[in-house]
Amino acid sequence: MLNGRDPRIDFFRGLALIFIFWDHVPHNPLGQITLRNFGFSDAAEVFVFLAGYAAVLAYGKILQRDGYLIACVKIWRRTWVLYVVHIFLLAMLMGIVFFANSHVETRDLVEEMGLTHFVTHPQQALVDELLLRFKPNLMDPLPLYIVLLGCLPLVLPLLLRKTWAVVAVSLTVYLLAPHLGWNLAAIADGVWYFNPVTWQLLFVLGGAAAIHAGQPRPVKTRRLLRQPLFVAAAVYALLAGVLTLSWRWPEIHDALMPSALSDLLYPISKTDLSPVRLLHFLALAYVTAKLLPGHAWTQNWLAQQTCRMGRYSLEVFCLGVLLAPLADMINAITGDAFAMQIFTALVGAGLMALLGAWLDLNKRLTQPAPPATA
Rank of each mutant, 00 (worst) to 15 (best):
I9Q: 08
G207F: 03
L273Y: 08
R248T: 03
P250W: 14
P216L: 08
R65P: 01
A303W: 13
G348W: 07
A357W: 07
L63P: 00
K270T: 09
I33C: 03
P153Q: 03
V287Y: 04
L261N: 00
V191I: 12
V85A: 10
L130M: 07
D254R: 15
W199K: 10
G4C: 03
L205P: 04
N195P: 07
R133N: 06
P216V: 07
W358D: 04
V97Y: 06
I330K: 01
P218F: 08
F49G: 09
H295I: 07
F98T: 06
L201C: 03
V242A: 14
A100H: 02
R248W: 09
F40H: 12
F118S: 08
A285M: 09
W358R: 09
L138P: 01
L354G: 13
K135M: 07
L292Q: 01
S262L: 02
T271N: 10
L243Q: 11
C72G: 03
A327E: 05
E112V: 01
G206I: 06
L158A: 12
V197H: 13
L351Q: 10
V127D: 08
G95F: 09
V85S: 06
A240K: 02
F281I: 02
L323M: 07
L30F: 15
G39I: 08
A327W: 04
L63H: 09
F317C: 12
M94Y: 14
E129Y: 02
D328R: 05
W247Y: 15
L261I: 13
T120W: 06
C318A: 12
L273C: 05
Y145L: 14
K290G: 06
V84Q: 04
Q304N: 10
R65G: 03
F11A: 10
Q123W: 14
L261K: 01
G14F: 06
Q200R: 08
L243P: 00
A357E: 10
Q123T: 14
H212Q: 14
G39F: 09
Y286S: 05
I70Y: 04
L326D: 04
N195G: 09
A296P: 01
Y193S: 13
L160W: 00
P250Q: 08
W301V: 07
A353V: 13
R65F: 02
M257G: 03
P293W: 08
G67M: 14
P26W: 08
M352E: 15
D360Q: 11
N137H: 12
L149K: 10
M94Q: 04
P370L: 07
H86V: 00
G207K: 09
R13S: 13
I96R: 02
T116K: 15
L175A: 09
F19S: 13
T373Y: 09
M257D: 09
G14Q: 12
L148D: 01
T288P: 00
I75Q: 07
H212T: 15
M340Y: 03
W164K: 02
Y68R: 13
E105N: 15
A168V: 04
K162T: 02
V347S: 10
V173I: 14
P153K: 04
L144I: 07
V287N: 08
R277C: 06
L314V: 14
H103P: 00
L279P: 04
I9H: 01
V219K: 13
V73P: 00
A168R: 02
W80N: 01
I342H: 10
G350Y: 15
E111W: 03
Y286I: 05
H121G: 00
G114F: 05
F38C: 01
E45N: 15
G207D: 08
S170D: 06
R133M: 14
G294N: 12
L355F: 05
